[in-house]
Design a protein around this nucleic acid. Structure first.
Length: 377
DNA sequence: AATTCGGGGAG
DNA sequence: CTCCCAGAATT
C-alpha cells in the first residue's frame, strides 16, 4: 500500500478549514457536545444548535445540573433525541464519578454511555492529541476512493481494514488535525456526488482518481424503504390550551411531547377518514373520564378529518390525520369541569399546555407540522 | 450482522 | 423523489 500523504493533508486542512464554533476551543466538553450533535447531522444544521447549547450549558456542571426536559427542548428539531438524553446522562456521570474531570484518553472516554468509537476517538485526538483514528461517513468515502475499495463499506470487514490502514498512516503529531482533515476533505472536496478532485491534496495518492472513476465509490447496498404507517391524532383545545401527552421513555421520539394518538397500520386509515373509530382512539389514550361526554358530543357532530400530512423518518413514514375538538364549543362553565382533574390526567402523561408554550417545549417536527397547518385558518 | 433510533441539506 | 450526514445502542 502506498499510503496517505498525511503532512500534505494536514497542511491543506490548516489552509482551508472552515471557521466553525467548536474549532475555537480544545475543551474536551465542548468537543464532546459538538461531536454528539454532529452524529449523522450536517455541520450547517448543527451550528445554531451548538451555539444555543453552549450558551445555556457552558460547562459540564451546568449540563449536569439541568433537567432532562430542558436539554430535550434545546435539542428539539435536531433528531436522534437519545443523543441528548445520553449526553445529559454522561455529563452527570462524569460529574459524579470524577468531580467533573473529563476522562483523558480514548479507553476512558469509551466508558461514557453515548460515546462510541467515533466520538471517543474524536475527543481524544482533538482535545488530547492522542493518536487514534476516527472513522465516519466522510472517512469511509475518502478511503474507499483512495483504495478503490470494492466491498460494501458498511461491512465489518471494510471497517476493520480501514481502521488498520488509518492506524498506520495517522501521524503522531497533530493526529486531531489529520482526523479533522480527512473529514473536512470528505465534506468539502471528496463529496458523494461530483467530487472536486482538482482541489484534492491527496490526488496523487488516489487510485480512483488515477483511473478516473471516483464517483463509483463508496460501494454500498441500497437502503430499505421506510415502513408505511398512519397516525390518527387528537387535537383537544380548551380555553387557550391544548392537550399534550408525554411519549414513552424508549423508542421513537422518546420522552418528547405529542398530541394524543397512536401509530397504526395503513389498512385502518379508512375508518378514521370516515369519522369512525375516533372515540375508541380517544379512550385508548385518555383513561380519565372527565371529558368523555363532551368528546362524544363533539364527535357526534362529525368534525372534519384533516390531513393527511406526511412526515418521513429514517425508516418509517407517517400519514398523519387529525380532528380538532374544541371543548369550548360545548362547555360554558368550563373551569368547573376541569377543577381538580389534572392529577388524574397525569397518570397518562397528559398535560394541558398553553398554546403559547408550543414553540418552546420538546415537540417533534411531525407535530409542529400539524400545529402549523392548523393555525393557517 | 441487522435494526432502530430524526430531520434536513443537496442534487 | 434519492442519498447522505463528524454514529451508538440494542437485538
Amino acid at each position: 500500500m502506498s499510503g496517505i500523504n498525511s503532512s500534505k493533508l494536514i497542511q491543506w486542512f490548516n489552509q482551508v478549514k472552515r471557521d466553525l464554533p467548536w474549532r475555537k476551543t480544545k475543551e474536551p466538553y465542548a468537543i464532546w457536545v459538538s461531536e454528539v450533535m454532529l452524529q449523522q447531522t450536517q455541520v450547517i444544521t448543527v451550528i445554531p444548535y451548538y451555539l444555543r447549547f453552549m450558551k445555556r450549558f457552558p460547562d459540564l456542571f451546568a449540563l449536569a445540573e439541568a433537567e432532562q426536559e430542558e436539554v430535550l427542548e434545546l435539542w428539539r428539531g435536531l433528531g436522534y433525541y437519545s443523543r441528548a438524553r445520553r449526553l445529559w446522562e454522561g455529563a452527570r456521570y462524569v460529574v459524579q464519578m470524577t468531580e467533573g474531570r473529563m476522562p483523558e484518553n480514548y479507553d476512558a472516554l469509551l466508558t461514557i454511555k453515548g460515546v462510541g468509537e467515533y466520538t471517543a476517538a474524536a475527543i481524544a485526538s482533538i482535545a488530547y492529541e492522542e493518536r487514534v483514528p476516527v472513522m465516519d461517513g466522510n472517512v469511509k468515502r475518502v478511503l474507499s476512493r483512495i483504495l478503490r475499495w470494492e466491498e460494501d463499506v458498511e461491512k465489518a470487514r471494510s471497517r476493520r481494514f480501514f481502521l488498520e490502514y488509518l492506524k498506520e498512516v495517522i501521524p503522531g503529531d497533530c493526529p486531531g488535525d489529520f482526523n479533522q482533515g480527512m473529514m473536512e476533505l470528505g465534506a468539502t472536496v471528496c463529496t458523494p456526488k461530483n467530487p472536486r478532485c482538482e482541489q484534492c491534496p491527496l490526488q496523487e495518492d488516489c487510485e480512483s482518481f488515477a483511473l478516473g472513476d471516483p464517483q463509483v465509490y463508496p460501494v454500498k447496498k441500497s437502503k430499505e424503504k421506510p415502513t408505511e404507517a398512519f397516525r390518527p391524532t387528537l387535537i383537544l383545545l380548551h380555553r387557550g390550551q391544548v392537550l399534550l401527552k408525554k411519549r414513552p421513555t424508549t423508542g421513537l421520539l422518546a420522552n418528547l411531547w405529542e398530541f394524543p394518538g397512536e401509530e397504526m397500520m395503513i389498512p385502518s386509515l379508512e375508518k378514521f377518514r370516515e369519522g369512525k373509530e375516533w372515540y375508541g382512539l380517544y379512550k385508548n389514550q385518555i383513561s380519565d373520564p372527565t371529558y368523555d361526554e363532551i368528546v362524544k358530543e363533539l364527535l357526534s357532530r362529525n368534525p372534519s378529518v384533516k390531513g393527511p400530512l406526511v412526515h418521513t423518518f429514517s425508516h418509517r413514514r407517517w400519514q398523519m390525520v387529525w380532528v380538532v375538538l374544541d371543548l369550548d364549543d360545548v362547555i360554558d362553565k368550563s373551569s368547573e369541569v376541569r377543577a381538580g382533574k389534572d392529577s388524574q390526567l397525569k397518570e397518562d402523561g397528559l398535560c394541558w399546555m398553553d398554546v403559547k408554550e408550543l414553540d418552546r417545549i420538546a415537540l417533534p417536527v411531525a407535530f409542529q407540522k400539524i400545529w402549523t397547518k392548523l393555525q393557517e385558518r
